[in-house]
Structures are given as structure tokens and as C-alpha cells.
């Protein structure tokens, strides 16, 4: 399972980088979405996978019984998803405004600030 996930994560990174390299800004944002998802899945995979054992403590007990999934990694991913959501919402607003002002969806037409 971990091998499969590793390939998935690698594939996502590759796809993300391919999309970021494109000239279109919409594709750039899609690439960024994929990149943040790839990073989240990387945390999920590298923290180890435990199936069908949610990290919930039974009522009255002080510790869960047996091996359970790592709750910290899940908390990290949740936080990262929240942050990614906020940042990407901003990115969408940004490209919309940029499109209105520049009237183009092409990185090659946005070279004014480069030197």
C-alpha cells in the first residue's frame, strides 16, 4: 500500500510541476493545488499507514487499545489543508483581478516587472 501511495505522491508532484511550468496562469494555479495536495499526501504516507483503526479512545479508558492510526499526522494534514484552502482562495481572487487588469492569461505578457 505504501509503495502504491509513494507512486501516487510522486505522480502528483510531477503533474504539479508540469502544470506550473505552463504559460497559462489558470494552469499555474491548478499546478499549485496539485502541489499542496501532493505535500499533504506525502505527510500522510510518511507517517505510516494503519488501516481501520481510528485514533479514538473508548469511553472511560485513558489510552486507545492496540495500534491506532497516528492522529498527529492527520492533524497536520488538516491544518495544511485549511491553510492551503485559504491561500488558494486568495490565488483565485488574484488571478481573476490580474486577468481583468492585464487582459491576458499568459505569463509571457507579464514581464513588465522583470528586468
Amino acid at each position: 500500500m505504501i509503495t502504491l501511495m509513494s507512486f501516487l505522491v510522486g505522480g502528483l508532484y510531477a503533474a504539479a510541476i508540469y502544470m506550473i511550468m505552463r504559460r497559462s496562469i489558470v494552469k499555474l494555479v491548478i499546478g499549485l493545488v496539485l502541489l499542496s495536495n501532493a505535500a499533504n499526501l506525502l505527510i500522510f504516507t510518511s507517517a505510516g499507514m494503519t488501516r481501520e483503526a481510528p485514533p479514538l479512545i473508548p469511553y472511560g479508558a485513558l489510552a486507545p487499545e492496540g495500534a491506532v492510526a497516528d492522529p498527529l499526522a492527520q492533524a497536520l494534514i488538516l491544518t495544511a489543508i485549511v491553510i492551503g484552502f485559504g491561500v488558494l482562495a486568495f490565488a483565485v481572487v488574484l488571478i481573476h483581478r490580474a486577468y481583468e487588469i492585464v487582459q491576458a492569461d499568459d505569463m509571457d505578457q507579464m514581464k513588465d516587472t522583470d528586468t
Binding site: 485559504g86 486568495f90 481572487v93 481573476h96
Partner: peptide, 13 residues
């Protein structure tokens, strides 16, 4: 607040 600020400003645009 955050979601609605973003969504409403996008919808208004």
C-alpha cells in the same frame, strides 16, 4: 467570515 468575504467579492466581480 473568510469564506463569505471571498465568495461574495468574487460573485460581485
Amino acid at each position: 467570515g473568510t469564506v463569505l468575504t471571498i465568495v461574495l467579492s468574487l460573485a460581485e466581480a
